[in-house]
Amino acid sequence: MKLTHLLATAAVALGMATSAFAEDKTKVGFVYVGPVGDGGWTYEHNKGRLAVEAEFGDKVETVFVESVPEGADAERVMTQMALQGADLIFTTSFGYMDPTINVAKKFPDVKFEHATGYKTAENVSVYSARFYEGRAIQGHIAGNMTESNIIGYIGSFPIPEVIRGINSAFIHARKVNPDVEFKIVWAYTWFDPAKEADAAKVLIEQGADVILQHTDSTAPLAAAAAAGNVVGFGQASDMAEFKDGPRVSSIIDDWAPYYIARTKAVMDGTWETMSTWDGIGAGMVGIGEITDKVPANVKAEALAMKAALADGSYHAFTGPINKQDGSAWLAEGETADDGTLAGMNFYVEGIEGEIPQ
């Protein structure tokens, strides 16, 4: 009887120890606006999640929900993650900003990280990448490669992040080709291959022989491939499956180092609210291979610009630059401050059309 009791006690103790070990795992959640197989934005965020698992092994558990609409659904998903024991939640789209703040208030012990937004709280950090640095390089290449002098741009939503990208690409395309014209189509979606393809087709019909995009799928590159004699760029990921076709380079988002660092901060108790906005220099923005479709001299210039952006010797928004209405914005040699860039709500001089409200 005593032996039986001893064995039972040992079994209970072992069970408690196993349970405690399981509880020691740091649970990290990810909320995605698109599917993990989108080949772009969400695909790269999910690579970051997998990097967290690879880095910490059985010390972490990660969970994710994909294709979550911005709004009430997002708030529901975040709440569920918090209730299910998440210690840290990454919310990876601009439209998740207010839902993140709302849910964070209800769960003060959970840490939240919101991508591309600007609202913080004691338990909410924000992070983004200086995508406009990559857009400058794309603009340089596009301005050199267009033969029609019409560059098409597919915008997702008219938010500062997207407007910055349009302006940066336009400025650098115009520097090398004063005759360049931008035609902009707003898709009002981050990920909708059918809408993105339609937008690309419209731009190509309007004479664009270069397509830039700030949407998440490979559909614009597929449309460019179908049209022939049209070039484009990978968005958020390399989209290398098109590199033997229209894709001449890409902007690559590398979230893995940030996700690993912030997860580690939760694990060791050093996590604090902060705002992070890194670019090419820090490795958060990468430039994909520039293919041989790009003339050698243009490729060399693009790589030199990449190096200058990385070491800080060049800023993508360096004056003289006027606003669309012709009023002065940046004087000769003056560079834009982060506050203005973060809230950018105007086009630069030379871009036609109005920003939708």
Rank of each mutant, 00 (worst) to 15 (best):
F64L: 02
T340N: 03
F317L: 05
I171M: 00
G269K: 04
F30P: 00
T340P: 02
A72Y: 01
L50Q: 15
T62K: 05
T42W: 09
A199W: 12
L7R: 11
S19L: 15
K111M: 14
I159P: 09
A169L: 10
P69W: 00
D216R: 06
A72G: 04
W277T: 10
A194G: 03
R164F: 12
V294I: 03
G29H: 11
T146Y: 07
P160L: 11
V298S: 10
V77Y: 13
L6S: 03
W277P: 07
M78A: 05
Y132S: 01
F233V: 01
V180H: 01
R49G: 09
G29I: 03
T215V: 14
N297C: 02
L330K: 08
V162E: 00
N123P: 13
H172V: 13
S148R: 11
A13C: 08
V124L: 04
A304W: 12
R174N: 07
G281R: 10
S156A: 10
N177E: 08
G15E: 04
G152N: 07
E272H: 05
A336R: 04
P178G: 06
S93T: 12
A331V: 12
A136R: 05
V298M: 13
N229T: 05
V126N: 05
I211M: 03
K25F: 09
V103M: 07
L203H: 06
V28T: 03
E70P: 10
Q138D: 13
Y96H: 02
